[in-house]
Design a protein around this nucleic acid. Sequence first.
DNA 1: CCTCCTTTTGAAAGCGATTACATTTAGTTA
DNA 2: TAACTAAATGTAATCGCTTTCAAAAGGAGG
Lengths: 325, 325
Amino acid sequence: MPSIKDVAREAHVSIATVSRVFNNPRVVSDETKTKVYFAAEKLGYTPNFSAKTLKKSIVGTMIVIVPDISNTFFIDIVRGVQNYAETRGYNILMGRFDIHRFDLQRYVRLVKSKAADGMVIAIGHNRHFAPVPEAKDIPIVTIEEEFMGNPYVYIDNYQAINEIVEYLVSKKRKRIGFLGFKSERERFLAFKNALMKNKLEFDEELTKKGAESGEAVYTGAREYVERILRIGKIPDSIVCASDVLAASVIKWLTKNGLRVPQDVAVTGFDNIEVAELFQPGITTVEQPRETMGREAARLLINKIEGHEVPKKIAFQTRIVIRESA
Amino acid sequence: MPSIKDVAREAHVSIATVSRVFNNPRVVSDETKTKVYFAAEKLGYTPNFSAKTLKKSIVGTMIVIVPDISNTFFIDIVRGVQNYAETRGYNILMGRFDIHRFDLQRYVRLVKSKAADGMVIAIGHNRHFAPVPEAKDIPIVTIEEEFMGNPYVYIDNYQAINEIVEYLVSKKRKRIGFLGFKSERERFLAFKNALMKNKLEFDEELTKKGAESGEAVYTGAREYVERILRIGKIPDSIVCASDVLAASVIKWLTKNGLRVPQDVAVTGFDNIEVAELFQPGITTVEQPRETMGREAARLLINKIEGHEVPKKIAFQTRIVIRESA
DNA sequence: CCTCCTTTTGAAAGCGATTACATTTAGTTA
DNA sequence: TAACTAAATGTAATCGCTTTCAAAAGGAGG
C-alpha cells in the first residue's frame, strides 16, 4: 500500500505538501495540487486512517449499543443514528446487540483507547446497567433513560399510554387490562396512572407483567388469556406494552372464541412493520424512532466536538388506529 | 490521557518494557510486571488503538453490510457475524443498512485506509452491485451470492422450494401459485423447477413477481388476490417468497371469504420471529441465518489472517410446518 | 535596485505504540 | 576464576501522517 512518502516522491514534492493537498488544499498552488492528485491517483493512494487519527484528537467513529436488534424499535433507532452520523462523516462501530452478554467496560475501553469517540446507548425500559466509573469522562448519550448524568432522548410513555386509554374510554371501554413485560415497567406505571386520570378502576387480576425472555411472549399471552378465562373476568379491552404481545393475545383470545375487537379490544405499542398485517390490524402507538436515533447521534457528535448540549430531549408519540381497537 | 511514556516513567522502566508487559508478558520478570501493572492501573492507562494499528498490519475490525436491517433474515446474519467476530477479538464497523443509498466505494476506501481489515456483504437476492475495481485486493466475503470471485456462503433455494412444493403435493395440492418480488428471482426459478420435478403444470396466471419497494408488500399481495379472483382461477395453494408476503396474501384471501388453509394453503419463507403469531401460523422455511453469519465471519477473518479459505459454503434449510399449509 | 510582504514549499518534530538489536545481569560450566 | 549462555531490559528506528517553523520565491513600493 503506497504511503504519503511514495506520493511525495512521485510528485516531486515534500510529504508536507501532499498532506496539505488533502487537508487544506487552498494553501497550495494549483500546479502543485494537480501534480499531487495525479501522483496519488497513479499510485492508488489512500491516507492511512490510524496515522491520521494518531495525530488528531477526533477519530470520527462512534459506538452504538442496543439491547435487542430483533426489535424494530431499536433497529429504527440504529438507522437514525446511522443516517445522521453519515452526514457528519462519522462511522459506526457496532456494539453488542443483545444486552445480556453486554459488557460496558469493553466499550468504554474502546473509547478510551481512541478506537471511537463516544457512544450512543439505547437503554431499553428500566434496564439498569451498573454505572462504570471509567465511563465518567467519555461522551455518552442514551436513549429512553438517563445514565450517569449524560444527555438522553426519550418518549413520554405516560402521555402515550394515556392517549391509548383515553381512546379506549372514548369507545366506551371500561374494564381495561394490561399485558407487558417486566422490562416495560414504566409503561405499566403509565397505565395505572392513565386509569386514575380517567377515573377507572385498576384491577390487579387483569394485569400481567410477564417474564424476561423473548421466547416467552407467546406463552405469556397464553397464560394471561387462560387466567382471565379461568377466573371468569374478561376485560373489554387490553393494553399491551408491545405489538408482538398484542398479536399474541389476539391469537389466544380468538382461539378461545372471543372476538377482537367486538368482545375485547386490544392495543399494541411500537407500530412494528407488520402491525397492519395481523388480523385484525393492530391499533398501536408509533414513536418517532428514527428521529430519536438521529437526535441522539447529533447530541453525541456535538458533545464530542466540544459544543454545549441539552440535558434531555423529549419526543411525542402518535396513536395509529387500525381494527383491533 | 496517559501514554505508554507516562507509565514507563511511573514504573521506572523503558517504554519497550511497558509494551512487552501488555503484548508479550512472559518475557518480562514478575517483579517488573507488577511494577508496570501497578503504574498502569494508577494512571488509568489504555493503549492507544491508532498507534498500535499503525505498526501492526491487522486492525481487528471488519465491516458488515446488509441491504435491509428491517428484515429478520439480515439481522440474524449480523448477529452471527457479531458473535463470531467477538470470539476472535474483532470489532464490527456498521455499513449502511439500506442498500439503496449504498456506496461500496466508500467502504472499500475504509478498508484501504486500514480503518478495517475487510468486509462481509449480505448481497440480498439478485441484487447486483457494480464490481468496484479497487475492491479487487481487499478481503471480502459475501452471503447468498458470489461477488467478484470472493468466497461466499449461501442456501440452496432450489432444494428449499422443492421441499415446500413436495410438501404441498403430499397434501394433495395440485394448482400451486407463486408470489414473490423481483429481487426473489432465484426463488421463482426454483419454484418453476420444483413444479417440473413434481410433474405439475406451471401457470403464469397464478404467478406474480411484484415490485421492489418494501411498501408494496401489502399492495402486491392484494393485486395478486384480486387478479386470481377476477380471472376466476383460484389456486389450491400459494408459495410465497417471504413470510411477510404470505401474511399479506392470507389477510387478503380471508378478507375475500377464502379460508386458509382449507380453500387455499399458503407457505412463507424465512421463518421470521412473528411467523407463528399470524392466524393461521405460517408454514415456512427456516434458514440457518445466524450460522451463515458466523461462517461468513470466520471465512473473512481467516482470509484476513492469511489462511486458505474455501470458495463457497452451502447451508441446508428446514421446513417448519404450522397451520397455513 | 533594495526592502518588505505574501504565497508557497520544505525540514523536522512528534503523535503512541512495536520491535530488532544491543547491552547488562545473572547463572553455568570447566 | 574465566568464559560462555540465557534472561531481562534498554535504545532507537519505524509505522504514516499533521503541523509548526523557517526558508525560498515572487511581487509591490519606494
